[in-house]
Design a protein around this nucleic acid. Structure first.
Lengths: 221, 221
DNA sequence: TGTACATCAGTGAACGCGCGTTCACTGATGTAC
DNA sequence: TGTACATCAGTGAACGCGCGTTCACTGATGTAC
């Protein structure tokens, strides 16, 4: 907990905005959930008193919107980093899926902030009826990846990319969210679950026994 | 909001317990989420002042545990009602899945209370490290249903019922939870999504075009 | 070069809110004599 | 049959907490003259 920070010189008050966002990200990384993401906690994490926050954000919803925006960007970067190579399209999709699950596992509070039903609905964000969807780019990246895989395997099905992407996404979210909310169950590795589902959707080859053994040896969790 | 209720005669104070649970269920049915499930709201909904609650529950966690227990029983009953007939095993499974999605859609606050990551973790329920799992019967019902379907289609795979059931469950939860948390997206019918996934897992026959058309005509949402 | 002044980043105290929980109590009900 | 009493369902007031937000302010910084 940084104590009182020194005041910014005159033109640079705006730097506090970045400090507040960094403080929010630190809170998300430290806490298992986002319930502690209060104005007071974020201010204190930045070494500042609560009223200072209002110099940079009109209200809590505006602060949260900025945090969500930043976290979606980090999420996209994390997934893109896992796929930035020259592997074939369906292997890229598979890696993107594994990265999705790894993000949820390693940053549960961020994951829930972005995707979980109850964490922050449109009400909390003040975006009811608005077409502001900070997660849209993430979703279309997945649709693209699915589309490329489909094109390479079943070109006549490429028009279904959106529908298939929704199947993949809901499968990923179900695995990620339930493994977080019901940790006491004897879960298999998240990657094993999604690989099986991808095989079922014909987006991945059924592994040969040998490949499966190697994969199992490498699997996390 | 019932105003002050009349006092119970002497031996029957215990009836308030049932009234409190009923009040909690009413709140869950009325609110989109479970955030209003406070001691004060539950008491007020039963026409009683907050301290009365402590005559029947030691603290809020105990009240919540009772609510969760009751809601899981309602959930199981709802799913069982959808499958209590003589259809073949895989059709029973399919109906169970559709009922799961219908429960989530029609009772979102209850669904989130039972299954969503952030609504009520073990911390809120005071069940950390305890083997108290009120949802276990629901899960094993699904494992059974998947097992029967597997046995009828691929007897040599019946030992995988648990793994396959987890795939089905995570798929169901992903559909249910994301449709609740991102209502602004252009979702296809939930039943169409799960049917497609069941086909992929070889738990359902790929529909013929004719069947698919009929199914589409009947589909909800 | 020195001084008065406007700017503005950040403070301190307070507001009203809903929350879980505790405490001493009230007063109708049923029972014992 | 009448009365004293124990039981116990439920109350009213208060506690301390963390929250989002508002308000008048302070005081260092940079600028104008």
């Amino acid at each position: 907990m940084p104590s009182r920070r020194s005041r910014r010189p005159k033109g640079q008050g705006g730097l506090l905005r970045a400090d507040l966002l960094a403080s929010a990200e630190r809170i998300l990384a430290a806490e298992g959930d986002g319930k502690r993401l209060s104005i007071r906690a974020v201010a204190s994490g930045a070494g500042v008193t609560p009223p200072s926050v209002y110099r940079h954000f009109n209200d809590k919803a505006e602060l949260l919107r900025a945090v969500v925006q930043a976290r979606f960007e980090a999420f996209d970067a994390f997934l893109d980093a896992a796929t930035s190579d020259t592997a074939p399209p369906c292997e890229q999709l598979r890696r993107r899926c594994h990265a999705y699950l790894e993000f949820a596992r390693s940053q549960p509070a961020s994951y829930r902030l972005l995707f979980s039903a109850t964490e922050l609905g449109p009400e909390a964000l003040g975006t009811e009826g608005v077409d502001w969807h900070p997660g849209a780019p993430s979703f279309f990246r997945l649709v693209d990846s699915v589309g490329r895989c489909l094109t390479s395997r079943r070109p006549h099905d490429a028009a279904n990319a959106m529908f298939v992407a929704m199947l993949v996404w809901t499968q990923l979210h179900g695995i990620a969210d339930l493994q977080l909310s019901k940790p006491e169950l004897p879960w298999p590795a998240a990657t094993e679950l999604i690989d099986h589902a991808l095989v079922g959707l014909d987006l991945l080859d059924r592994p040969t026994p040998a490949k499966a053994a190697v994969r199992r040896r490498k699997s996390d969790r």
